[in-house]
Protein backbone atom coordinates (compact mmCIF):
# COMPACT_ATOMS: atom_id res chain seq x y z
CA UNK A 1 0.00 0.00 0.00
CA UNK A 2 1.44 3.37 -0.90
CA UNK A 3 1.43 6.41 1.37
CA UNK A 4 -1.49 8.05 -0.41
CA UNK A 5 -3.78 5.01 -0.07
CA UNK A 6 -2.79 4.69 3.56
CA UNK A 7 -3.56 8.34 4.23
CA UNK A 8 -6.95 8.08 2.48
CA UNK A 9 -7.86 4.94 4.38
CA UNK A 10 -6.92 6.34 7.77
CA UNK A 11 -8.94 9.48 6.97
CA UNK A 12 -11.96 7.29 6.09
CA UNK A 13 -11.48 5.29 9.29
CA UNK A 14 -11.10 8.27 11.61
CA UNK A 15 -13.99 9.95 13.39
CA UNK A 16 -13.17 13.40 12.05
CA UNK A 17 -12.51 12.08 8.54
CA UNK A 18 -15.92 10.44 8.44
CA UNK A 19 -17.59 13.56 9.76
CA UNK A 20 -15.91 15.73 7.14
CA UNK A 21 -17.20 13.38 4.45
CA UNK A 22 -20.69 13.56 5.97
CA UNK A 23 -20.44 17.36 5.88
CA UNK A 24 -19.14 17.39 2.30
CA UNK A 25 -21.90 15.13 1.00
CA UNK A 26 -24.32 17.18 3.11
CA UNK A 27 -23.27 20.32 1.22
CA UNK A 28 -24.00 18.61 -2.10
CA UNK A 29 -27.46 17.68 -0.84
CA UNK A 30 -28.03 21.16 0.58
CA UNK A 31 -27.23 22.60 -2.85
CA UNK A 32 -29.38 20.08 -4.68
CA UNK A 33 -32.57 20.90 -2.78
CA UNK A 34 -33.01 24.53 -3.92
CA UNK A 35 -32.33 23.40 -7.51
CA UNK A 36 -35.00 20.74 -7.22
CA UNK A 37 -37.35 23.24 -5.60
CA UNK A 38 -36.97 25.85 -8.34
CA UNK A 39 -37.81 23.18 -10.91
CA UNK A 40 -40.91 22.19 -8.96
CA UNK A 41 -42.09 25.75 -8.54
CA UNK A 42 -42.33 26.01 -12.33
CA UNK A 43 -45.62 24.21 -11.75
CA UNK A 44 -47.03 27.60 -10.86
CA UNK A 45 -45.79 29.05 -14.18
CA UNK A 46 -48.34 27.09 -16.16
CA UNK A 47 -48.61 23.64 -17.68
CA UNK A 48 -46.01 24.06 -20.40
CA UNK A 49 -43.28 25.62 -18.28
CA UNK A 50 -42.65 22.57 -16.11
CA UNK A 51 -43.06 20.14 -19.00
CA UNK A 52 -40.56 22.11 -21.06
CA UNK A 53 -38.16 22.18 -18.16
CA UNK A 54 -38.52 18.40 -17.66
CA UNK A 55 -37.97 17.81 -21.36
CA UNK A 56 -34.86 20.00 -21.32
CA UNK A 57 -33.55 18.18 -18.26
CA UNK A 58 -33.97 14.81 -19.92
CA UNK A 59 -32.40 15.88 -23.21
CA UNK A 60 -29.56 18.02 -21.87
CA UNK A 61 -26.16 16.73 -22.94
CA UNK A 62 -27.89 14.24 -25.29
CA UNK A 63 -29.71 12.76 -22.32
CA UNK A 64 -26.44 12.33 -20.45
CA UNK A 65 -26.70 15.15 -17.95
CA UNK A 66 -29.63 13.70 -16.09
CA UNK A 67 -27.73 10.44 -15.63
CA UNK A 68 -24.60 12.19 -14.45
CA UNK A 69 -26.76 14.03 -11.92
CA UNK A 70 -28.57 10.87 -10.86
CA UNK A 71 -25.44 8.82 -10.37
CA UNK A 72 -23.68 11.71 -8.65
CA UNK A 73 -26.54 12.28 -6.24
CA UNK A 74 -26.96 8.59 -5.56
CA UNK A 75 -23.26 8.27 -4.70
CA UNK A 76 -23.43 11.30 -2.43
CA UNK A 77 -26.52 9.93 -0.72
CA UNK A 78 -25.05 6.47 -0.23
CA UNK A 79 -21.86 7.88 1.33
CA UNK A 80 -23.86 10.26 3.55
CA UNK A 81 -26.17 7.52 4.82
CA UNK A 82 -23.51 4.83 5.15
CA UNK A 83 -21.17 7.02 7.20
CA UNK A 84 -23.85 8.45 9.46
CA UNK A 85 -25.15 4.96 10.18
CA UNK A 86 -21.59 3.82 10.97
CA UNK A 87 -21.02 6.81 13.25
CA UNK A 88 -24.32 6.29 15.03
CA UNK A 89 -23.73 2.58 15.57
CA UNK A 90 -20.37 3.38 17.12
CA UNK A 91 -21.83 6.14 19.29
CA UNK A 92 -24.60 3.88 20.55
CA UNK A 93 -22.03 1.21 21.36
CA UNK A 94 -19.78 3.46 23.47
CA UNK A 95 -22.25 5.84 25.13
CA UNK A 96 -23.92 4.91 28.40
CA UNK A 97 -27.29 5.83 29.83
CA UNK A 98 -27.85 7.70 33.07
CA UNK A 99 -30.52 6.66 35.56
CA UNK A 100 -31.36 10.35 35.74
CA UNK A 101 -30.92 11.63 32.19
CA UNK A 102 -30.72 15.34 31.41
CA UNK A 103 -30.18 17.48 28.33
CA UNK A 104 -28.56 20.88 28.65
CA UNK A 105 -28.34 22.37 25.23
CA UNK A 106 -28.75 19.79 22.46
CA UNK A 107 -31.71 20.70 20.27
CA UNK A 108 -34.40 18.18 19.47
CA UNK A 109 -33.42 18.26 15.79
CA UNK A 110 -29.81 17.48 16.65
CA UNK A 111 -30.79 14.50 18.80
CA UNK A 112 -33.12 13.10 16.16
CA UNK A 113 -30.70 13.29 13.21
CA UNK A 114 -30.41 9.56 12.61
CA UNK A 115 -34.19 9.02 12.82
CA UNK A 116 -35.08 12.03 10.72
CA UNK A 117 -32.38 10.92 8.29
CA UNK A 118 -33.68 7.36 7.98
CA UNK A 119 -37.26 8.62 7.54
CA UNK A 120 -36.04 10.90 4.76
CA UNK A 121 -34.26 7.93 3.19
CA UNK A 122 -37.51 5.93 3.22
CA UNK A 123 -39.26 8.93 1.70
CA UNK A 124 -36.62 9.31 -1.03
CA UNK A 125 -37.02 5.66 -1.99
CA UNK A 126 -40.80 6.09 -2.13
CA UNK A 127 -40.51 9.41 -3.97
CA UNK A 128 -38.20 8.01 -6.65
CA UNK A 129 -40.35 4.94 -7.21
CA UNK A 130 -43.41 7.19 -7.37
CA UNK A 131 -42.23 9.96 -9.69
CA UNK A 132 -39.02 8.75 -11.37
CA UNK A 133 -39.46 5.00 -11.85
CA UNK A 134 -43.25 5.34 -11.57
CA UNK A 135 -44.19 2.03 -9.99
CA UNK A 136 -47.69 1.42 -8.71
CA UNK A 137 -49.25 4.08 -10.95
CA UNK A 138 -49.92 4.61 -14.65
CA UNK A 139 -47.70 7.70 -15.01
CA UNK A 140 -45.79 5.89 -17.75
CA UNK A 141 -49.01 5.35 -19.74
CA UNK A 142 -50.29 7.26 -22.79
CA UNK A 143 -52.63 9.32 -20.62
CA UNK A 144 -49.51 11.10 -19.37
CA UNK A 145 -48.23 12.16 -22.77
CA UNK A 146 -48.72 15.66 -24.05
CA UNK A 147 -47.48 17.98 -26.76
CA UNK A 148 -45.16 20.95 -26.83
CA UNK A 149 -44.21 23.09 -29.83
CA UNK A 150 -41.99 20.84 -31.97
CA UNK A 151 -42.98 17.69 -30.06
CA UNK A 152 -46.24 16.04 -31.06
CA UNK A 153 -47.76 13.93 -28.31
CA UNK A 154 -44.53 12.41 -27.03
CA UNK A 155 -43.70 14.69 -24.12
CA UNK A 156 -44.11 13.35 -20.61
CA UNK A 157 -46.80 15.35 -18.81
CA UNK A 158 -45.05 16.14 -15.56
CA UNK A 159 -47.64 18.78 -14.77
CA UNK A 160 -50.51 16.27 -14.79
CA UNK A 161 -48.40 13.74 -12.88
CA UNK A 162 -47.79 16.17 -10.04
CA UNK A 163 -51.41 17.33 -9.87
CA UNK A 164 -52.68 13.73 -9.87
CA UNK A 165 -50.03 12.67 -7.37
CA UNK A 166 -51.04 15.35 -4.91
CA UNK A 167 -54.75 14.74 -5.36
CA UNK A 168 -54.42 11.68 -3.11
CA UNK A 169 -54.83 12.68 0.50
CA UNK A 170 -52.71 9.80 1.88
CA UNK A 171 -49.72 10.42 -0.40
CA UNK A 172 -49.87 14.12 0.18
CA UNK A 173 -49.99 13.93 3.95
CA UNK A 174 -46.99 11.55 3.91
CA UNK A 175 -45.19 13.98 1.61
CA UNK A 176 -45.90 16.92 3.89
CA UNK A 177 -44.77 15.05 6.99
CA UNK A 178 -41.58 13.91 5.23
CA UNK A 179 -40.76 17.45 4.10
CA UNK A 180 -41.28 18.72 7.63
CA UNK A 181 -38.91 16.07 9.02
CA UNK A 182 -36.46 16.94 6.25
CA UNK A 183 -36.46 20.54 7.39
CA UNK A 184 -35.78 19.58 10.99
CA UNK A 185 -32.81 17.57 9.64
CA UNK A 186 -31.64 20.54 7.58
CA UNK A 187 -31.80 23.02 10.42
CA UNK A 188 -29.18 21.06 12.37
CA UNK A 189 -27.33 19.81 9.28
CA UNK A 190 -26.77 23.26 7.83
CA UNK A 191 -25.10 24.65 10.95
CA UNK A 192 -23.21 21.40 11.56
CA UNK A 193 -21.50 21.64 8.18
CA UNK A 194 -19.80 24.84 9.32
CA UNK A 195 -18.68 23.37 12.63
CA UNK A 196 -17.40 20.14 11.10
CA UNK A 197 -15.43 21.95 8.41
CA UNK A 198 -14.00 24.29 11.02
CA UNK A 199 -15.75 27.39 9.71
CA UNK A 200 -17.82 28.22 12.78
CA UNK A 201 -16.75 30.23 15.79
CA UNK A 202 -18.52 31.75 18.74
CA UNK A 203 -18.74 35.02 16.83
CA UNK A 204 -20.44 33.53 13.78
CA UNK A 205 -22.46 30.96 15.71
CA UNK A 206 -25.74 32.86 15.88
CA UNK A 207 -25.53 33.98 12.27
CA UNK A 208 -24.93 30.43 11.05
CA UNK A 209 -27.71 29.01 13.22
CA UNK A 210 -30.13 31.63 11.90
CA UNK A 211 -29.05 31.04 8.31
CA UNK A 212 -29.73 27.34 8.89
CA UNK A 213 -33.19 28.09 10.18
CA UNK A 214 -33.91 30.45 7.30
CA UNK A 215 -32.70 27.89 4.77
CA UNK A 216 -34.82 25.13 6.33
CA UNK A 217 -37.86 27.40 6.47
CA UNK A 218 -37.47 28.40 2.83
CA UNK A 219 -37.21 24.78 1.74
CA UNK A 220 -40.22 23.87 3.89
CA UNK A 221 -42.46 26.64 2.57
CA UNK A 222 -41.31 26.07 -1.00
CA UNK A 223 -41.88 22.32 -1.11
CA UNK A 224 -45.14 22.44 0.85
CA UNK A 225 -46.63 25.20 -1.31
CA UNK A 226 -47.27 22.67 -4.10
CA UNK A 227 -49.19 19.95 -2.21
CA UNK A 228 -51.07 22.60 -0.24
CA UNK A 229 -52.08 24.42 -3.43
CA UNK A 230 -53.15 21.21 -5.15
CA UNK A 231 -54.87 19.33 -2.34
CA UNK A 232 -56.37 22.16 -0.34
CA UNK A 233 -56.92 24.83 -2.97
CA UNK A 234 -57.57 22.59 -5.98
CA UNK A 235 -54.78 24.21 -8.00
CA UNK A 236 -54.66 22.65 -11.51
CA UNK A 237 -57.30 20.05 -10.70
CA UNK A 238 -60.14 21.32 -12.86
Amino acid sequence: MNALTRAVLSFWDSSIGKKILVAGTGIALLLFLPGHLIGNLLLFAGKDAINEYALWLHNAGHGGLVWVARIGLLTVLVVHVLLTVQLTVRNRAVAQKYSYPATNRASRSSRMMIWSGLTILAFIIYHISHFTVRIGNDYNGTAYLTSLPGHEGDVHNVHKMIIDGFSHTGNTVFYMVAITILCSHLSHGFASVFQTLGLRSRKSDLLIARAGWAYALLIWVGFLSIPVAVLFFGYGRT
Binding site: K18, K19, V94, T103, N104, R105, H188
Partner: peptide
Protein backbone atom coordinates in the same frame (compact mmCIF):
# COMPACT_ATOMS: atom_id res chain seq x y z
CA UNK B 1 -10.68 6.92 18.43
CA UNK B 2 -8.67 3.97 19.73
CA UNK B 3 -9.55 4.76 23.33
CA UNK B 4 -13.20 4.07 22.56
CA UNK B 5 -14.76 7.53 22.55
CA UNK B 6 -17.70 8.32 20.29
CA UNK B 7 -18.05 10.81 17.47
CA UNK B 8 -19.03 14.42 17.92
CA UNK B 9 -22.39 15.27 16.36
CA UNK B 10 -22.42 18.94 17.35
CA UNK B 11 -24.90 18.84 20.23
CA UNK B 12 -22.72 21.25 22.30
CA UNK B 13 -23.61 19.49 25.55
Amino acid sequence: DEAGFGNCSNHYE
